[in-house]
Amino acid sequence: MAIPMVLGVLFPPRLAITAASVLALTSLGILGFLEIRGIHLKYSKFSNAAASSISSKVPSRVGMFFLYTPAFLAGVASFWLFPDGDLRFLLLKSAITIHFFKRVFEVAFIHKYSGEMGIDSMIIISVSYFFLSFSLIYTQLLTLGLPEPSIDLKNPGIALFLIGISGNFYHHYLLSKLREEGGKGYKIPRGGLFGMVICPHYLFEILGLLGISLISQTLYSLSATLGSAFYLVCRSYVTRRWYISKFEDFPKEVKALIPYVF
């Protein structure tokens, strides 16, 4: 018997869900390794990391808006497409919709932008987020009618999701305060957990995704969370390396993602 079944924390996976889980974990893992190798998705401070003509870019605000809107709309549509289901299904649809609504809200009202985004990266990330949103909801739909896991993790999942989304929003707000409207430069972030790690927003994003996987308790949601966490670990590592290369006074005790550890 598979380990997740013995532990009683996951719904029994079907073949299609298992295959999708492996694909999600593998593809996100590859993206993480590419980040370490210096092949970045061209957004944020790495938007100019690879040569690209101006015709293949869009303003960063436009690009970020298109990253998250399809995934948000997939969450909204799920309430109409799949109106039935149990409390777990409702919580998952709500968490995913809130997660991407927050991102769209931040693009519109919180973040400040000065650069451009590669259209190729915009398309890759947008499609990935849309597929993640829809697939998390659809794989949860397939669990309806199955016996519940013997250990119910919905409540810890809700708590972790709320901690993650709140911490992520707060540190995004702090980042937005570093730059005047129209400014193009970068500064070393201060406040919150920035005195301990350079990417606390990634740390809280991982916590929020872990919360979603605990709400869901499917193999696919767990695989998507692990894959996303690995990518963000790699992204935080190269972000810290970038700050060290740009700022001579960057405090060496500030870690990449996990205080005192990494």
Rank of each mutant, 00 (worst) to 15 (best):
L153M: 13
S150A: 08
A224G: 06
H172N: 02
E106M: 13
I39R: 01
G85C: 08
S44I: 04
G63W: 03
G185D: 14
L175Y: 06
F33E: 14
L226I: 15
L210W: 04
F161L: 13
P70W: 02
I244L: 01
F72C: 10
S44D: 10
L232G: 12
G75S: 06
S135P: 11
Y68T: 08
K246H: 03
L10D: 12
L28G: 12
N155T: 13
S150I: 07
L210Q: 02
A20L: 12
W80E: 08
G164V: 14
K154V: 15
P59A: 05
G211I: 11
S135A: 15
V238I: 07
A159R: 07
L162D: 09
R88K: 03
F11M: 05
K252N: 13
A24P: 04
A77P: 05
I124R: 04
S44E: 12
F169Q: 09
I125F: 12
L193Q: 01
V261G: 07
L162T: 08
V233L: 09
F82R: 15
L142R: 03
T225P: 04
I96T: 14
T69C: 07
G85W: 02
G32F: 02
P189H: 08
F72N: 05
K93Y: 10
A224K: 05
L144N: 00
R190T: 15
L210E: 03
T97D: 02
L7S: 00
